[in-house]
Amino acid sequence: MSIPHGLLALLDQRPMYGYQLRAEFERATGATWPLNIGQVYTTLTRLERDGQVVGQATDEEGRQRYEITAVGRETLRTWFTDPVTLGDRPRDELAIKLALAALSPGLDVQAVVQNQRVATMQRLQELTRLKRDAPTPSAEDLAWTLVLDNLRYMAEAELRWLDHCEGALARVRPPTAPPTSDPDPDAASDLATDPTQESLR
C-alpha cells in the first residue's frame, strides 16, 4: 500500500483539501495507519509535479483543494487492477526470527513460540473487541471494518502458523529440559515423542 495511491483514490471521489485527505484516509483505514499532515502535503507536491493531481485556485483563507487528473486516474486504475505481489510487501520479521531461532543451539525455541503466541492472541483479542463494540457496519464504516477484519485474519493465520512451528520443532528437536521446577520430567518428553497431538488441530 502506498500513500500516493491512497490519496489518489480519495481524490477520485471529489476534490479535497490536504487536511480533509488526512481525515478521510484515517477514517478509511480505521486509524491503523496514521498520517501526519506533513506526509500528506509532501505527497501532494510530488503528485502535482508528476501531473497526477492539480491544485485548484486558493480560496480567501489561502487553502487549496486538489483534484485528480486523467493521468492520476490511469495510475489509480492500474493500481486497483494489478494484484499486489510478494515483492511489494516487507519481509516478515517473525518468520525470519523463528527460522533463525530454530538454528540457534541452546535456545528454548518453544518459549519463543509461546511468547509470540500470547502476544498475538492478545492482539487478536483487542481487534475482536474493536469489532464487537462496533455497530453493524454501515456503508460509511465498511472500509475500516474490512481493514479490521484483515488484521484479525492475519493474527489468526499467525497463530495457526505458530502451532505448526511448535509441532514441527517438537518433531525435529525435542524441547530443552525446563529448569528443575518441573515436577514431572514426562511432561516434556510426551510432547517430543508424540508430535501427532500437535498436528491434529
Binding site: Q114, R117, V118, M121, Q122, L124, Q125, E126, L127, T128, R129, L130, R132, R152, Y153, A155, E156, L159, R160, A187, D190, L191
Partner: peptide, 28 residues
Amino acid sequence: AGHAAWADRVVFLRDGAALDDTGSASGP
C-alpha cells in the same frame, strides 16, 4: 483462535497444565 479471541482471557493448556494466559484485557 478467532472465536477464543472473544474471551476476556485465553488460557493455553499443554500436557494438562496451564502454560500461559493472555491476562486481563488492555485497551484498544
